[in-house]
Amino acid sequence: MFIIFGTRGIKHTVNDSPVLSNSCPNCNDGNLVHKLYRRWFTLFFIPVIPLDVVDRFYQCDRCKSAYNENIKTVLQQSKQEIDENQKRAKQIFAKALVASMTHMSIIDGDFAKEEEREIMDVIEGFVEMREELMAIHEDVKVNANKDNRVFNYLSEARNVLSSEALINVLAQAAVVLLADGSIEEEEETLMKEYLIACGLPKEMYQTLIDKLKQKDMSKLKEGQLN
């Protein structure tokens, strides 16, 4: 008999923490609910034993935007300060995303056109930052992680963004892994290093890949039906 065990992260609501009513900076009306990511030991894919808490954050119950725990302090600041913090978080998110995606695409020595297209699509989504993001893209494409620049972007993101936002960065970076149809050993190793740099367990790697593959399969089925 085979015994299948492992670990996985599960999101929980912190029941003894008050809800921040009508406080979401993104949609304005949503309530911010205190959440945590806890790693669980699994047996036959069933969570059995709770392990360490990976991160705590607030998530809007309406638009699902996620915020670092310091959002409570931010909400006490002026609207101008809130807008500036949101703008800075968006910039940090975009820089970390483009840098990690570009680095991931060149790590195997073969920068495929499918990978380039994925990165260009992301850059076009940040119109006001397009020039700066293109410069980051070209720099990493040529110099890779020289002076630890890519991991510095991720480190800055870790200090500002919630784990939910960090997972979003890495999930989009993982799209590059699958863009050319195969995952090289160098790409897998690098993605695990990204997870660690973001303060997330490297065991989340397989979860990210499985979800992306499921998403791709769903798109394929929808295309066949249409």
Results as ranks from 00 to 15, higher is better:
146 K>C: 04
56 R>S: 09
88 R>K: 13
22 N>A: 08
38 R>S: 03
39 R>M: 14
85 N>V: 08
6 G>F: 06
111 F>N: 04
51 L>A: 03
29 D>P: 07
57 F>D: 12
99 A>T: 04
47 P>T: 10
91 Q>R: 11
70 N>M: 09
51 L>W: 01
103 H>E: 08
115 E>R: 03
68 N>K: 06
3 I>N: 12
118 E>C: 07
120 M>N: 10
76 Q>R: 15
73 T>L: 07
116 E>M: 08
121 D>S: 11
94 A>R: 03
103 H>G: 15
133 L>S: 05
13 T>H: 03
32 L>K: 12
82 I>R: 13
126 F>Y: 07
124 E>A: 02
120 M>T: 09
40 W>E: 06
114 E>Y: 00
60 C>S: 08
106 I>N: 02
121 D>P: 00
142 V>G: 01
24 C>K: 11
65 S>H: 14
8 R>A: 06
92 I>R: 07
37 Y>S: 02
94 A>V: 02
79 K>I: 11
57 F>H: 11
44 F>M: 11
67 Y>M: 05
101 M>W: 01
95 K>I: 04
52 D>H: 07
114 E>A: 14
36 L>M: 07
41 F>A: 12
68 N>H: 15
30 G>K: 08
110 D>H: 09
46 I>W: 05
142 V>T: 15
132 E>Y: 03
92 I>A: 12
5 F>T: 14
65 S>W: 13
88 R>E: 13
77 Q>D: 12
52 D>Y: 03
26 N>A: 14
16 D>V: 04
50 P>Q: 01
88 R>W: 07
5 F>L: 06
106 I>K: 12
66 A>S: 12
35 K>I: 00
144 A>R: 14
28 N>V: 11
16 D>R: 07
41 F>M: 10
49 I>E: 00
5 F>P: 01
104 M>E: 05
94 A>C: 04
128 E>F: 10
33 V>D: 13
